[in-house]
Design a protein around this nucleic acid. Structure first.
Lengths: 141, 141
DNA sequence: TTCATATAAATTGCATACAATCTAATTGGC
DNA sequence: GCCAATTAGATTGTATGCAATTTATATGAA
């Protein structure tokens, strides 16, 4: 067929796009009791792991820009999980996890295993996929 | 460390989420001249490949619900690429590609190869990732 | 010093995603 | 035939994503 290359099943992008959404959806019910969304969850993970940082650095870690992060951080601040402070150079905003934010970590720590057990992949398969994703990110970002 | 399992780098979800967004972003400049978004693009591909169908079947193929598809199809219809008609059972809406929609296919047919050449994976790696994604979709949908 | 340039974050505008609800139409039990 | 239960799609509300613009601040060359 002349338009073979347009078959959804021949596209690399589509399974990735659909699977990513499917995995993300698994988090929604688990995060419900914390009131966090998936994006807010990964933002908290980045802050736990790397400590305080400015919005730009957080954006580099999460591959998100200020258009996404600004309103998201405002919500996390309103919920009391983070604090934002202008630095000496007042252009920068430092984001810091609060006491309440660290308390949240206990609840969040149970989530990864709940999701992992729904993913029907062997360890090597999962590792291969993660490596593939990392190669893509290095090449495209 | 007590919270190892919360490291972003230990999460399966995050590389998948970030890589999927990175790949999708590659389409944006390529689709710009057609006026389509990425989601509109995959909707057109599904319709080219499977022919006319109702909204529900399209949603099953794309893993999208009517909340996403209704406004999206409205835009594709306004652009003249599809037509929506109520069937004999007036609850169903049949979506059909128009003449103009089929003309668009020529332009779209050049896009997959442009994206593919930016993906730094060997053929076997890409196939393994697609297989992994399909397993996830089967398990979670 | 002064003002053009550059930079970080916030805001704006548009298009998803998706849960929840609503509306219109159909079907099934009686 | 009548009406409760179902079903398909549309709508509503909230939260991203991201490009483009704006705002506030800092820097650097004349």
């Amino acid at each position: 067929m002349a338009y073979d290359q347009l078959y959804l099943s021949h596209q690399f992008c589509f399974p990735l796009y659909a699977a990513s959404k499917a995995v993300t959806r698994q988090y929604i019910p688990l995060l419900k009791e914390t009131g966090l969304t998936y994006t807010q969850y990964i933002a908290m993970l980045a802050l736990y792991e790397h400590g305080s940082m400015d919005v730009q650095d957080l954006g580099k870690i999460l591959y998100l820009d200020s258009g996404t992060l600004s309103p998201l951080l405002k919500k996390l601040e309103a919920a009391g999980y983070i604090e934002k402070t202008r630095g000496e150079d007042a252009r920068f905003v430092t984001v810091e996890v609060t006491e309440k934010g660290f308390e949240l970590r206990e609840k969040l720590s149970k989530i990864p295993s709940s999701v992992a057990c729904c993913i029907p992949l062997k360890k090597e398969e999962a590792i291969a996929m993660i490596e593939g994703c990392k190669k893509i990110l290095e090449a495209l970002e």
